[in-house]
Design a protein around this nucleic acid. Structure first.
Lengths: 255, 255
DNA sequence: TTGCATGCGCACATTTTTTTGCATTGACGC
DNA sequence: GCGTCAATGCAAAAAAATGTGCGCATGCAA
């Protein structure tokens, strides 16, 4: 990729100060504010910084997170964008299944931001439950099961059966990998079984996966690609891979 | 999600001091009180702090809603003693059902302290789940259900059915009231239904109730006194009431 | 009770920043 | 020379952040 020297300089400044302002940068580089905004927008798309009103801050070191929620640092920014886009697809009154995972957790966070939304949400993730607890307007159904440490996900026959009993408008599924050859795959067998159950009961089925998951094959098979309708990923994704997935009949949305 | 540096600074201050005031913050950041109020409102919506009159306090650590917290304060010492005593009755290898409530939560906390204990615990309380998550040796089964705000308890047919499917060695039940006339009673109907389901599947059935619950009658009937074997309460309890309960065949333990 | 002080939050005004559409520039290849 | 294309600038419109005025609630002291 051809990197603009100004971009490099902006990132250096950001590294040094932690925060930069549009008004400051345009003077420093003798360009218009418009140009700086475009620069920042592009750098933000690459996940190298985060835009704020009037400037930008370092993408790393966002520290005010509730401690009990572990942030998966990797591709965090892409996940947030995916989460936001997914949340925007959800309409008032719908019933939604939210899978376990850091990307789906971002959907939950984005949903919490949107108020006056009446939703029924079913999930096997206690992280998501903790985020959405006490959100007015959201009726939260937690499936039962054995608690899997770390992920705080519920697995086992209680979980699988619970999903079989509810029919939802939309499912947002997280995966360990998605590829043409192996379809949807996952690292943990028990989680995979739950995912299979989820897939059976949803009208519209979305996979959310940041670009690092594309083309990757994890340990267990979940389902063939055809079982889902839409993939939501981020704009860093390799174009050829996306094209191939589209030709396979999958609708792909870029966040 | 907004990354406003001021938000970040407010949270840092909060972390340091434990409490911040609107009037102080608006001077510190040279903005109007209105702006600070808006900031605090937004941060509260994200669950990062708790608003109080004139300012905000840290929400981290014990991160949940007022109703539960305020109730947790009452008779806290007694509850801790009861929890400790109950936990001491639990032996390695047993399976345990832990009911929803502040007293049973203390049992969970006491259990977490005791290491090298292999247990299977089933519960409908997300507070308890959060306490016991990642405790080595404890296999945690969470029943499913609809999340009841405030209590963070799971209710409904998923919860009831889950309890019916597991047989446990010991059940520790919390109640809203316990009396000779009305037996075991509870404030919330849905919780009461779940409690009934729990009672059916346990070999040894304990009620934990601090002395303020004795002689009190809450809204719904759970079960007659005969359905439980032991009451664990604190030593503040009225002796006559205890005597009466003992004569009725209930074993009473004082913590 | 009344009056006062404090704090809250809505509605609207103001300021700042961003977005958008379009024009301009200059490098590059033909 | 000339068309193309990416980079840039400009200005109007839109959106976001902030400030101000005002009514309301609460607590406290006269």
């Amino acid at each position: 990729m051809h990197i603009h020297p100004r971009h490099r300089a902006i990132l250096d400044l950001l590294e040094e100060k932690g925060e930069v302002r549009v008004s400051d940068l345009c003077g420093r580089f003798s360009v218009s504010e418009m140009t700086i905004r475009r620069d920042l927008a592009e750098l933000e798309r690459s996940g190298l910084l985060r835009r704020i009103h009037g400037g930008a801050v370092n993408a790393r070191g966002r520290s005010y997170e509730p401690p009990f929620l572990s942030r998966a640092g990797a591709h965090q920014f892409q996940k947030e964008r995916i989460g936001k886009l997914a949340a925007d697809l959800i309409h008032d009154g719908e019933s939604i299944a939210l899978d376990v995972g850091t990307t789906t957790l971002e959907i939950a966070r984005a949903l919490k931001e949107r108020s006056n939304l009446n939703l029924t949400i079913i999930t096997a993730s206690l992280h998501i439950t903790n985020v959405l607890a006490n959100s007015p307007g959201i009726r939260l159904i937690v499936v039962g099961g054995v608690l899997r440490f770390g992920e705080l996900s519920l697995v086992g026959h209680l979980a699988e059966r619970a999903f079989r009993e509810f029919y939802v408008d939309k499912l947002f599924l997280g995966v360990g990998g998605i590829s043409l050859e192996a379809g949807l795959t996952e690292f943990n067998l028990e989680d995979a079984l739950v995912k299979q159950a989820m897939l059976k009961t949803a009208k519209e089925r979305y996979v959310v996966a940041d670009s690092s998951k594309l083309g990757r094959i994890a340990f267990t098979h979940i389902a063939p690609l055809n079982d889902v309708h839409v993939l939501i990923t981020d704009s860093e994704a390799n174009e050829k891979v996306i094209q191939a997935l589209r030709e396979h009949g999958l609708r792909v949305m870029l966040a």
